[in-house]
Amino acid sequence: MSHFTKSHYLFAIITFLFFGCKKDEEVVPKNIMTYDGTEFELSGGVVLNFGQLSSTQGNAQVLFLHSSGIKIHESGGKIDSTSGIGHTLYLEIFSPASTVLGDGEYNFDPYYTYQAKTFGNAYTVFNANYSTSEGEFHEIMSGKVTVKKDGTDYTITFDCKEDLAGKSLTGFYKGGLKIYDEK
């Protein structure tokens, strides 16, 4: 075999190895919540920051995640109203941070002590219709929520149980959250 042919085969092998190896891409789960085996999409979220109620308590914040059919309307930098039809998750959460939703694991507090890294009043509504005030309401009675902030994006996972039959509500959201100062 000639020197040229050997070089050609070597070049072909190197090219195959170089272009044939793809960089592994991070697999990110879909933004969804799952209830009783049914998936519901999530497309956005907001945080309403009410501040610290007392020096021994966490910063009161409302985390509101919603599907694409729900629209948030604002006036003067404050939420004015909501409209549309879709799915929502509402959590009254007590953050250790005063201006952002703080990183960490938040556990359901049935005693409403308002301690940092807990959440209390919580529910989800499927097929919420803001025109007729109808929808399938489920109060959350136990569980945990994990928050991780990276730049302007949040990664939120939750694993909770609802009130009636103790069915599981789990979910994942990764994206931005608009923060409203309600103090």
Rank of each mutant, 00 (worst) to 15 (best):
I79E: 07
S95T: 12
S67L: 06
I13R: 11
L42R: 08
V125G: 02
T155D: 12
K178V: 10
Q52W: 11
G166S: 04
L63H: 06
A116R: 13
V46N: 11
F158E: 00
Y111Q: 08
T118C: 03
C21A: 07
S54K: 06
K167I: 00
G151R: 05
A165M: 04
I179T: 04
A122W: 05
N127R: 14
G135I: 08
Y130N: 12
I72K: 03
G44W: 01
T118H: 04
S2W: 05
F119N: 01
K23G: 02
Y111R: 06
L169Y: 01
Y111I: 01
S43A: 15
A116W: 09
S68K: 12
F172K: 02
T155P: 11
P110V: 04
D103E: 14
S54I: 02
C21D: 00
S54Y: 03
I70Y: 12
G171N: 01
K117N: 12
L177M: 06
P29K: 14
K117Q: 11
V27E: 05
L164A: 14
P29G: 10
N127D: 15
K144A: 09
F137T: 01
N49A: 13
D153Y: 10
T155H: 13
E25L: 15
D24Y: 05
Y111D: 05
Y90L: 08
Y123A: 12
S68R: 07
A97L: 05
K161M: 10
Y111S: 05
D36E: 15
Q57I: 07
S98N: 11
G102F: 07
N59S: 11
G20F: 09
E134A: 08
F119S: 01
S168P: 00
I156H: 06
M33V: 09
I13Y: 11
T34L: 12
Q61L: 00
K183Y: 09
D163P: 00
F126L: 14
I93C: 04
F40V: 02
E105M: 00
T146M: 11
S98M: 08
G175V: 09
G143P: 11
N59K: 09
F16S: 04
T88E: 10
E92F: 08
T38A: 15
K149C: 10
A12V: 09
E41Q: 09
N31D: 07
L53R: 08
L17E: 01
L63P: 04
S54H: 03
Y112A: 11
S95M: 07
K30N: 03
T124P: 05
I32L: 15
T56P: 10
F19T: 13
V145S: 00
G51V: 09
H3I: 15
F50C: 02
L63Q: 05
H73I: 08
N121F: 15
L65P: 02
H73A: 07
K149G: 11
F158D: 01
M1L: 12
G20I: 10
S67K: 07
A122P: 04
K167A: 03
D24W: 05
K149T: 15
A12P: 00
N129K: 13
T88Q: 10
H66P: 05
I70A: 06
Y112H: 09
H73M: 08
L53Y: 11
I13H: 09
F137S: 02
G176C: 10
G102M: 13
T15C: 14
G104R: 02
Q115C: 07
T124V: 14
E41F: 08
D103H: 13
D181Q: 05
K23R: 08
S131R: 12
T34Y: 06
S67V: 03
I85L: 13
L164P: 03
E162M: 06
K22Y: 15
A165D: 04
E92C: 05
